[in-house]
């Protein structure tokens, strides 16, 4: 059975991001997938990689200990879905910190002779569901950093069979109809994912 880890980052329970999260989790559960929702704000995740963890970062025998529960949940997953807003052309800090602390050597990648090899290959489906304040054009001009990290860095760590990057740009001026349309789009994509 497909087991999906949904990484969700938004501080407000009644946000549009929460509606997208529900669209993802409900659609996948209806397909019979096992869904593990990791709500980083609700779980009070600490995103700060400290001095001791940084020093132990490359020791694959012990580096998972401070975040063992999160590493176990990630390793149990065969699908990984990020649901979050884009802030300042990047992930919210709480989500960036998840990748700083949990996407460890030995968990998501291996260093062999200085080359980065994928180690998250149990993830066969990888997706991002996100919103931008910026227009698509402005995001392109800025180089769209979150799309690049997902589509290149994390994609390479997983080498997934399926990859989706679902984004609603220019969020501040999107009306109710556009928002509803994007939720429907996300549901459709998750049905086929």
């Amino acid at each position: 059975m497909t087991r999906a880890l949904v990484l969700y980052a938004h501080p407000c329970a009644d946000s549009y991001a929460a509606a997208l999260r529900d669209a993802v989790t409900e659609t996948l559960a209806a397909r019979g997938w096992e869904v593990d929702l990791c709500d980083l704000y609700a779980e009070g995740f600490d995103p700060v990689l400290g001095d001791a963890e940084r020093r132990g970062y490359h020791d694959t025998a012990t580096n998972t200990a401070p975040v063992q529960r999160h590493v176990d949940r990630l390793r149990a997953a065969t699908a990984l879905i990020f649901v979050h807003p884009v802030w300042n052309f990047g992930f919210p800090a709480i989500l960036k910190g998840y990748t700083d602390r949990v996407f460890l050597p030995g968990v998501t990648f291996r260093l062999e002779d200085g080359r980065v090899r994928p180690a998250m290959t149990h993830i066969r489906r990888l997706a991002s569901v996100t919103t931008y304040g910026a227009s698509r054009m402005r995001a392109i001009l800025a180089g769209d950093p979150p799309r690049r990290v997902m589509g290149r860095a994390f994609w390479h760590a997983c080498r997934p069979d399926r990859f989706r990057y679902l984004a609603l740009y220019d969020m501040n001026r999107a009306d109710a109809a556009q928002r509803a349309k994007f939720v429907a789009h996300v549901k459709r994509q998750m049905e086929q994912f």
Partner: peptide
């Protein structure tokens, strides 16, 4: 870290680069 800013620095942008300070809303 991971081709991006450490969460600590990303959070500085999130919290300090506020509308009315760093940019003006439409």
């Amino acid at each position: 870290w991971w081709y991006g800013l450490p969460a600590m620095l990303k959070g500085w942008l999130d919290r300090v680069m506020l509308p009315g300070v760093a940019f003006l809303m439409p």
